[in-house]
Simulated assay, not measured.
Amino acid sequence: MIKPWTKIGSEYLGDFRIFRIRADHSRSPRTGDEHRFFVLESPDWVNVIPLTPAGNVVMIRQFRHGVEAVTLEIPGGMVDEADGDPAVSAARELREETGYEAAEIIHLGSVEPNPAFLNNRCHSYLARDARWVAAPQLDGAEDIAFEEVPLGDITALIQSGAITHSLTIAAFYYLELSGLKKPT
Rank of each mutant, 00 (worst) to 15 (best):
F63R: 08
C122E: 15
E176L: 07
I74E: 01
I163F: 02
G84C: 06
G99C: 04
G99L: 07
K182H: 04
G9L: 13
R128I: 02
E176I: 04
Q137F: 03
S166C: 03
L157D: 07
L157G: 05
P86R: 06
Y100G: 06
Y173W: 11
L108T: 03
E142V: 01
G140W: 07
G152H: 10
E112L: 05
S10Q: 09
D129L: 10
D153K: 07
V70S: 13
S166H: 14
I18L: 08
I169V: 06
W132S: 12
N56R: 01
W132R: 14
G84M: 12
H123R: 01
V70L: 04
A23N: 09
H65F: 03
L167F: 01
S160A: 13
P50C: 04
V133T: 13
G32V: 10
N119P: 06
E104C: 00
G140S: 11
F38C: 05
T168Q: 08
H65E: 14
P50K: 12
A156R: 14
I21F: 06
D139Q: 09
L151P: 00
V48Y: 02
A82N: 10
D143M: 09
W5K: 12
A54N: 07
A90P: 14
G152I: 01
I158S: 12
I21A: 12
P150E: 03
I49W: 03
A23M: 11
F172W: 10
H165Y: 12
N119W: 05
M1A: 09
F37I: 00
S166D: 09
